[in-house]
Design a protein around this nucleic acid. Structure first.
Lengths: 249, 249
DNA sequence: ATCCCGCCTTGATCGAAATCAAGCATTACC
DNA sequence: GGTAATGCTTGATTTCGATCAAGGCGGGAT
């Protein structure tokens, strides 16, 4: 592993970070994990199809309808994926962070837009050349199938949320899920950093900012969460939160 | 192709139908398409991990929470995939027909239930043994990744529908999509068979049966569709329907 | 410091869809 | 044939979340 990291540093991009994101060791499904020994020629090959870039907060690195040339792996920061209706209505389909992939759900053209909500560092792959990567690293394709399957599970859970849950249940579900993700990624269990605005939350949960605000207040008044002055959240009663999220399971 | 079909008939299951569903030749993404020549030993191997079954209307062949032993390929009939909340609220995440796969979005346990809404014929694979199938037929894994990607696109489109569209836009979107699917599958463009009930439609679109009924009436009054006496639909003005679905794009 | 602007919260009112309710059509079953 | 069950439609009323509106807070620019 360390030997591999050394080798990676010799290549133009930091492959150990790009291909084997080390930040979230506990996240399981969110990593490629090309952990086998890599020959130098393999590294050069990977470096030839990948490229590390930085995207500043507020900027998009994929736009719905554009030709889908690239596939991305997030190394640092948070981005939102969204779809828009012509009249401005917006649905955020997910937030992605370190270790996550962007571009799996793409045809010829992107069917979503991706925008950095914090400064984002990412690794960019040419999608055509990625095919070649697959034949050289079959484990990668296997891994991507697992990732895609997992994303399908998450997407279906979100359909249940959007189709059938009340406003307060949606907020509880989101905070519950987000805090589990934070815990898995090694974050402390006390304060939960929310990099997205209330508008983002509303567009993710199919609500308006006012309803999001009211639902958060309701959860606060019930003593389930606390809202910090900087608009972050701390979960006071995780079990109660989970019960609300699952509609009293 | 014909030679392959002949060979398939020698095996215990009808592989040409099960693995290469022939019913919907125009559907593209929905087929595995193991179109390369198959050796006899390959056929025997496939037959050893697959099994053809019939599921009667109203019966489930996968239940949320159960150990996810099997992966399915639908050969005939229609099924609904759904998730339920403890208090009875239900979200249908999709309808599947000939050529579709069920069980991609599964972990250790099913995260959805699958129920036949017509008599269904399907081909059942043991998910553990499927891993072995992958190493023998790498093209299959590639194909499943494509299928999973396509399902992700559809799921995200459905999130936009559930999170941001009005009742009438949801109905228009559904009918538009369903009719395109029917046309691709070689169906006539005139009458559109809806194998699902209004309740299913409501649970798919995040509405109630009354609202579904009213939205259909509204579309009918606008001269966009006609509702046949047997509750099927015929699309009178496809372009207008599409415009409503895309919120006046 | 002061102003402005973006972001959030809370209150008042409105509206789209849910709920409640009634009735009709078709099919299933005795 | 009669009757119950199932599924669909339409009308009346209610409700939850959207919309409209006002005000607070904090950070950045001048």
């Amino acid at each position: 592993m360390l030997e591999q990291r050394d080798r990676a540093h010799r290549s133009p991009i930091n492959l150990s970070e790009a291909i084997i994101p080390g930040l979230c060791a506990g996240c399981g499904a969110r990593h490629i994990g090309l952990c086998d020994a890599l020959a130098d020629e393999d590294l050069h090959f990977l470096a030839s199809v990948a490229r590390q870039t930085t995207v500043a907060r507020g900027h998009s690195f994929a736009i719905e309808g554009d030709s889908a040339r690239y596939f991305f792996n997030i190394n640092a920061g948070t981005a939102r994926l969204h779809k828009d209706l012509p009249d401005g209505r917006r649905q955020i389909t997910g937030f992605v962070g370190p270790g996550d992939f962007v571009g799996l759900a793409a045809d010829d053209r992107y069917t979503f837009s991706a925008e950095a909500i914090e400064d984002v560092r990412l690794c960019r792959f040419d999608r055509t050349e990625l095919r070649g990567v697959f034949s050289r690293f079959p484990a990668l394709e296997r891994r991507l199938l697992d990732v895609a399957s997992h994303e399908l599970i998450v997407a279906q859970e979100q359909m249940l949320l959007l189709g059938r849950k009340s406003a307060i249940e949606r907020l509880a579900s989101f905070i519950d899920g987000w805090s589990r993700r934070a815990i898995l990624c090694g974050g402390g269990t006390d304060s939960l950093r929310l990099p997205m605005t209330r508008t983002d939350l509303a567009d993710y949960l199919g609500l308006t900012i006012e309803t999001v605000s009211r639902a958060l207040s309701a959860l606060r008044k019930q003593g389930v969460i606390e809202v910090t002055p900087d608009h972050n959240i701390s979960v006071v009663r995780p079990h109660a939160l989970h019960d609300i999220a699952r509609a009293g399971a």
